[in-house]
Amino acid sequence: MSSPIVPPLDTELATRVLVGFLRQEAERAGFGRFVLGLSGGIDSAVSAMLAARAFGPENLIALAMPWRGSHPDSLAHARLVAEAGGFPLEVVDLTAAADGLLGVLPEPDAHRTGNVLARLRMVTLFDRSLADRALVVGTSNKTEVLLGYSTMYGDAASALNPLGDLYKCQVRDLARHLDVPSIVVDKAPSADLWEGQTDEGELGFTYDEADAVLHRLVELRERPEDAAAAGLDEDLVRRIHRRVVRFQFKRSGPIVGKLSQRTVGWEFRYPRDWGT
């Protein structure tokens, strides 16, 4: 299945690499099981299919974490994905936890409510990580990582992220290759925080538009003016470029005020897989 937005992905090779990545990185850390949040959307569906191949569906703990504001379709679609992947789905209702926390926060709006939910899901996943000796698999694709369209320490948090080097349109190609149910592949992407919310409505452009621009800026290393000269909408290119720059902080950990000769992150730089 080819994508017209960026050069088509070799889905078979990508699957082999990403399944091998998940398996080998987990094994070297001493894990043989994964846990992830299954939202009913395409990204978590693809992550789940890959994780299920790494150690078998019986070693994947998939959690649906709805709350009272969630659209019922989300849970229904998560069930379809779990069925297609052959792994069980556990439902952890976050309504009581979310309402408890939101009730003591000063007048949370929709945006902050979304962040609270994303972080409660992260808390739930990392709790199960320890309880079940399972590594948390991430679901953030390259498009949203570059656009900063995620909650820090929320949905952006994971131990291993198989999607982080795939643009949204490539995730769609991979989803079809991995037999993700078509209703999940084809529906409008949404964080499902309020009725009728869609990612593209919030961002103000489509993922296909974003991918076309990001591919030129990031992969081809074109300057914004080059991308505009190549026929892309100049205002769109500028808006996307601004987002990429502005949200750089979401792609890094906390920065440290340097004092010593050997500061963690500067002179003290080791691979995460050190000694494994």
């Binding site: 960026v6 050069p7 088509p8 992905l9 070799d10 889905t11 078979e12 090779l13 990508a14 690499v17």
Partner: peptide, 17 residues
Amino acid sequence: PGRGVEGGGSGEDRGRF
């Protein structure tokens, strides 16, 4: 390290980095 999984290869290079 494997770089380039875009299926751009042709003939016997298909399916390779």
